[in-house]
């Protein structure tokens, strides 16, 4: 489904601020799988998602999606295949426009935008029907600007928008991180349901190891721009939050193991 071959991205190359955000990352995502990406802050998770979504072009490497080489596609073109929900609940919708107008744009994601009236009564009925399933009472507020809603409500709608047309790949970047715990739980639940019902292929960055364990069927751990661990299939079924913490620990320990430690162990380790 999604194949990433050795992509690299360096910000501010050849300066003191050089950040090697991705270092030859390769990853293959199977159709219908739900993969969680975890990792310390700044480990390159968002950068990886951005590279897939086309927010910028990686310095090197290849990405194919559904058999098509998309590395040279601009972001807006990839949107026909990729649905996205961002960490910032305000990033996925146009605040001054109504709920209906926002959704109607998502109903033609990656398609032509004809010169026909967008929000008609019949379209509104269709929208209301699906918005009702969110059980947030938003179906009665379709004509309100979406900016008047809470972060949780907006994120739920953004999720609905991203999946209205079934995307080949759904990208979720810490989409519950900025929400209060209750909304986060609700959006989390919603994510699970939509992905299951629509049999979506999804890639989710999350800061919550519990969420990774509960929702996904594969967990990829990143550190310093590299994938350091990949729990899948049987391994994923067995893995618990504490195991992930240990893996984090181990990765960090490895980091602390520098030449001075090597010298220390040479003297004392027998």
């Amino acid at each position: 489904m999604l194949k990433i071959y050795a992509i690299s991205k360096t910000f501010f190359p050849n300066t003191v601020n050089e950040v090697r955000a991705l270092q030859k990352v390769s990853l293959t995502i199977e159709e219908g799988s739900f993969t969680a990406i975890i990792g310390t802050n700044g480990s390159g998770k968002s950068t990886l998602l951005n590279a897939i979504a086309g927010t910028f072009f990686p310095d090197e490497g290849k990405i194919t999606l559904d058999g098509t080489e998309i590395i040279n596609w601009p972001e807006y073109k990839r949107a026909s295949l990729v649905g996205r929900v961002f960490q910032n609940p305000f990033a996925g919708s146009a605040a001054e426009m109504t709920i209906a107008e926002n959704i109607v744009m998502a109903m033609r994601r990656g398609q032509s935008r004809p010169l026909r009236q967008a929000v008609t009564l019949s379209v509104k009925e269709v929208i209301a029907e699906r918005v009702r399933l969110l059980k947030m009472g938003l179906e009665d507020r379709l004509d309100n600007p979406i900016g008047t809603l809470s972060g949780g409500q907006r994120q739920a709608l953004t999720l609905l928008m991203a999946t209205w047309l079934k995307p080949k790949l759904l990208l979720l970047d810490e989409h519950t991180a900025a929400l209060d715990p209750k909304s986060a739980a609700k959006v989390s639940e919603l994510t699970k349901n939509i992905i299951q019902q629509e049999k979506l292929t999804a890639l989710m960055v999350t800061h919550s190891m519990q969420q990774a364990v509960d929702l996904s069927d594969r967990i990829v751990m990143m550190h310093r721009g590299q994938i350091v661990e990949d729990y899948r299939d049987e391994m994923k079924k067995r893995v618990r939050v504490i195991d992930l913490m240990e893996t984090f620990d181990r990765v960090q320990k490895r980091e602390l193991f520098d030449e001075s430690v090597a010298a220390l162990l040479e003297k004392q380790y027998v």
Binding site: Y76, A94, A95
Partner: peptide, 9 residues
């Protein structure tokens, strides 16, 4: 929200 517009293709 230009980012959202791009995300809509």
């Amino acid at each position: 929200n230009p980012q959202m517009v791009r995300a809509q293709g």
